[in-house]
Design a binder for these strands. Structure first.
Lengths: 225, 225
DNA sequence: GTCTATATGGGGATAGAC
DNA sequence: GTCTATCCCCATATAGAC
């Protein structure tokens, strides 16, 4: 049985993901976790630091899985570059996998993660920072090799956009079902992953075949200005 | 001159965008607006409905501009389809333009809009709904024509991802500056637009038809399931 | 480590004079 | 329409017994 601390983490992960940080009171958390109200402040010192701990735990789990996938792919491809498709997959797939500790709801932390990017309450603590650095050190070179035609600046831009698409998918996938009049089913994990990966890969590769979009040649993209 | 109601709208637009809905008190709003505390409830009945009004006002402004742009592009292209690039541009560009009523800060509503998608407090009121419908009725056919190779289901998926990329850019562009160690400058509006448009267009077109994306050796795009 | 009880403060909303 | 004063609730956080 999870001890008090873990119960709190698991309950708050779910609640924050569902309702957002401000909308969830400590009372709601402790009730859901079956622990005493004062336990949160005893174990985490404050509500903010609880959120902090939550993210740190989640991001670490996440990056461990990502790097494991990358390791596998790199082994598979020997000295050649790992194709972009697989790199994107390695980064994104774990975000749709994380089960927190509740086996029934598979998307709790992912939803929370989707919210994180627009959650100013979260500050990067040292543990999380070093974790993110490790992640970057592993994936950046791999991406560079896989996309030799994309200059570093663009690689940042595009990765940033990719994060946005992913975060939005994690946080608001329900919206898609409405917008598409039921045509798209975001609860189908594998389909979602496939569509998202295809979109991101295309965006990352954009125009990397032949022409650069720098001033000079206008190529197919005529800007009427 | 802005009357009380508008002062409240403008002040709250800025504050909500900067700090988020819950983090901004009515007292902060009325102080910033230079009006009395009770004025908010007098004019908007509640804090939630203030947010509502804010979104309705913003979305209407936004869609008016978008449709005007589309009109212009369609006139320009006669009976032929408007290229995807321009459609994307017509949708996205106004989001980076909106100045609210504060001439000095150009991104207030846009940032707020970026947050909206993960803001459960917002419910679509009738005015906003009909507005969004008009928007869809104008742009959906145009997109279909511009992307004949993309099945409707995928068009929804991809538009959804595009929204995510855009929202993220609007809401957290500051993040990019850090992630890229200063290499990318998200305050440069025109560059941001160009990069974002290129990314989205590539994602929308992904694997459609023949004419684009030859990424050399990794171009093994196994389609079909 | 866990609980009860409480301190302390801020929040949204309103009543009612002007 | 605008203001003052206030109500009342609910939040986080802590003190101190067990």
């Amino acid at each position: 049985m999870a001890d008090t601390k873990d119960s709190i983490l698991n309950a708050s992960e779910r609640l924050f993901a569902e309702r957002g940080f401000d909308a969830v009171s400590l009372r709601a958390i402790t009730t859901a976790a079956g622990v005493n109200l004062a336990a949160v402040n005893y174990h985490f010192h404050s509500k903010k630091q609880l959120l902090q701990a939550l993210f740190t735990r989640g991001v670490q789990k996440l990056n461990r899985k990502r790097i494991a996938l990358l390791d596998a792919y790199e082994a598979e491809h020997g000295k050649g570059p790992v194709p972009v498709e697989k790199l994107v997959r390695a980064i994104i797939e774990p975000m749709f996998d994380i089960t927190g500790s509740l086996s029934k709801d598979s998307k709790t932390f992912s939803m929370l993660l989707g919210r994180m990017y627009s959650t100013p309450e979260v500050r990067l603590d040292p543990a999380m920072l070093s974790d993110i650095e490790n992640f970057g050190k592993r994936f950046e070179p791999a991406l560079r090799r896989a996309l030799p035609g994309v200059v570093p600046e663009d690689l940042y831009w595009r990765s940033f956009f990719a994060i946005g698409a992913t975060a939005h998918t994690l946080a608001s996938s329900q919206l898609l079902q409405n917008l598409s009049y039921g045509l798209c089913n975001p609860d189908d994990r594998e389909t979602t992953l496939k569509k998202l990966t295809a979109f991101i890969v295309a965006g990352l590769k954009a125009g990397s075949g032949i022409k650069q979009k720098k001033a000079g040649k206008t190529g197919t993209n005529r800007r009427g200005k």
